[in-house]
Design a protein around this nucleic acid. Structure first.
Lengths: 125, 125
DNA sequence: CATTCTGTTCTACTGTGAATAGAACAAATA
DNA sequence: TATTTGTTCTATTCACAGTAGAACAGAATG
């Protein structure tokens, strides 16, 4: 799996990494049960600091996406491991984006089409 | 229009303000052509610093949501004033959220239903 | 068993952004 | 004319991002 880090982005490195790992799962490149590289090895590959990868892993664990087994490694969780609060949090994160879409003049259908196209993009490739 | 600021949130104050102004427009509480309070008056109302409100206004102007008339005030833009790059930026912001939704086990339809319910919530009230 | 690798934890430093504060300016407004 | 407006400047405090090095204890491997 190919990860691209842009050091000069306004998005923190640990969040870029988290996002791309999640995208990798969504695209089916990696699956529940698979283990992620060690923080040291991953950091070495990406050319970033070990603590940055560690922060990313813990962010993903907080979201319920991976499980960190102490002294062992990080494993991608199964979908059924997600709790209700994660879905509530997701809704709160969609809100400002949907509001901005409406204010931009996008009609109801166009917003759904946009989201639908993103979903298809993830599932197709 | 009622604005609620949570100083201890992990979301910056200027972004909380931006989000709630956009929501206000989406809900129809304020309309294109309406003018926003002066940065000083707004800051006084919210109990925050003038520069924080100023930053929020400039963020909204950058997104094409309001127009700042120098030495006069801030006015809410019309939907047709939005450019193509704003829509492209919106899509990029939807991506990680959609990916996370898929990873959480939400099927295609459920994601669209979630977004649809948010849209209805904005338009109903 | 000994070595290596693992995630964890700690301190430490630099740089940047968020937020506040005060002051001053020129233009619009009342 | 006096007030209000957004703008700009400096300055400070605080927190976060990122890097760095070190040490620890448990797991994996030879």
């Amino acid at each position: 799996m190919i990860i691209r880090i842009e050091p000069d982005s306004d998005i923190p490195i640990y969040e870029q990494l988290s996002n791309q790992i999640v995208e990798g799962i969504a695209r089916g490149w990696i699956h529940p049960g698979d283990s992620l590289p060690s923080v040291r090895a991953f950091a070495s590959d990406l050319g970033v600091n070990m603590h940055t990868v560690n922060k990313s892993y813990h962010q993903l664990e907080k979201k319920g996406i991976i499980t960190i087994v102490p002294k062992s490694g990080a494993i991608i969780s199964s979908p059924q491991d997600f709790n209700e609060s994660s879905l509530a949090r997701l809704k709160e994160e969609y809100k400002p984006l949907v509001a901005e879409s409406l204010v931009a003049g996008m009609p109801h259908e166009q917003i759904l089409d946009l989201v639908s196209s993103i979903i298809k993009d993830f599932k197709k490739i």
